[in-house]
């Protein structure tokens, strides 16, 4: 009985002509080379290049309007750059036909700025959407179990599982968005200002959660942020966007060694110093404690 049903499932899935994606073993899951993005006369990116290392959390910073979100949208194929090439997990985004594109789509998760939850579905149903889309062969029971544990994994309380997005606070919406981004156990995670609009305690918890998930699940994270605390606390490297390019990529000490006025002002301004001080304090204070995340 059971095996018959299983055979049937396999047949159905294989008729969808999906194949097991080859595991990505290269060093750079995201390679952006010389892209140019333009809206009318306004040039956002001009010959911009960036490589993201496997397993790292890369923070992307830049003043408002320097095209951080546009860069993310280009990488995930929502905005086609007029020039240059983008490769994600070894597949070209800029050359890909629509259909070919789709099988990498199941290997990344995206958290948009406002959460971008489907407002007519509950949190758990939101998580189910990508599962239904990419793995229709999963049984209802398993799919629901997955949705349920992902909700908790993103740090939401159990009660949030059956709530609609309009019933959630801003911070909970972000966590629900994260749960949906993690639905398919992606290798890549894109976060667009995950801590913007959260209270400091919530933001710190979200940072810890991101770090913990990245370590546990072995994720590569592309993280757009304005939050200096996030940069200090969880980012392995930081990419700085200015003058329509990535002007520098490196750890914060490496960036500070550069003599660029914007970078100096960004990290050495009053807020930058405060964030650094907090980080140094917490590093020495909690060295031996395990960094358990929480809601």
């Amino acid at each position: 009985m059971g095996s018959e049903r299983a055979e049937e499932l396999i047949e159905r899935a294989e008729s969808e002509a999906q194949s097991t994606p080859p595991e990505f073993t290269g060093e750079y899951p995201i390679v952006v080379e010389g892209i140019t993005n333009q809206f009318g006369p306004q040039v956002v990116h001009d010959d911009l290049s960036l490589k993201v290392k496997r397993g790292e959390i890369l923070g992307v910073v830049g003043g408002s309007g320097t095209g951080k979100s546009v860069l993310m949208r280009s990488i995930i194929g929502l905005q086609i750059p007029s020039e240059g090439s983008i490769e994600v997990l070894g597949q070209s985004i800029t050359d890909a036909e629509e259909d070919e594109d789709i099988d990498i789509r199941s290997r990344w998760g995206v958290l948009f700025q406002g959460g971008a939850l489907f407002s007519t579905l509950t949190v758990a149903e939101n998580v189910e959407v990508p599962l239904r889309q990419f793995y229709p062969e999963l049984s209802d029971a398993l799919r629901q179990e997955i949705a349920r544990y992902k909700v908790r994994l993103s740090g939401l309380p159990e009660e949030a599982t059956s709530k609609y997005p309009s019933e959630l606070s801003g911070g909970m919406k972000k966590r629900a968005g994260l749960a949906r981004a993690l639905a398919l156990d992606p290798e890549l995670l894109f976060l667009d200002e995950p801590t913007a609009g959260l209270d400091p305690i919530g933001a710190a918890a979200f940072d810890r959660l991101t770090r913990e998930l990245a370590d546990t699940l072995g994720l590569t994270v592309f993280l757009i942020t304005h939050d200096l605390d996030t940069l200090h606390a969880i980012c392995d490297r930081v990419a700085v966007l200015a003058d329509k390019k990535v002007i520098a990529v490196g750890t914060i000490p490496e960036l500070l060694a550069l003599d660029h006025p914007w970078i100096q002002e960004y990290f050495n301004g009053p807020r930058g110093r405060a964030a650094e001080a907090t980080h140094t304090r917490s590093m020495s204070g909690t060295m031996d404690k395990d960094n358990k995340g929480g809601a």
Binding site: M1, G2, S3, R5, A6, E7, L9, I10, A13, Q18, T20, P21, S106, L131, Y135, E137, L138, S139, A141, L142, I146, L184, D185
Partner: peptide, 18 residues
């Protein structure tokens, strides 16, 4: 085999009956 979301569906169905 691969114990991942992409490869687990038939295994899960059979496991439930054991």
């Amino acid at each position: 085999g691969p114990l991942t979301v992409a490869g687990i569906a038939p295994l899960d169905t059979r496991l439930r009956e054991l």
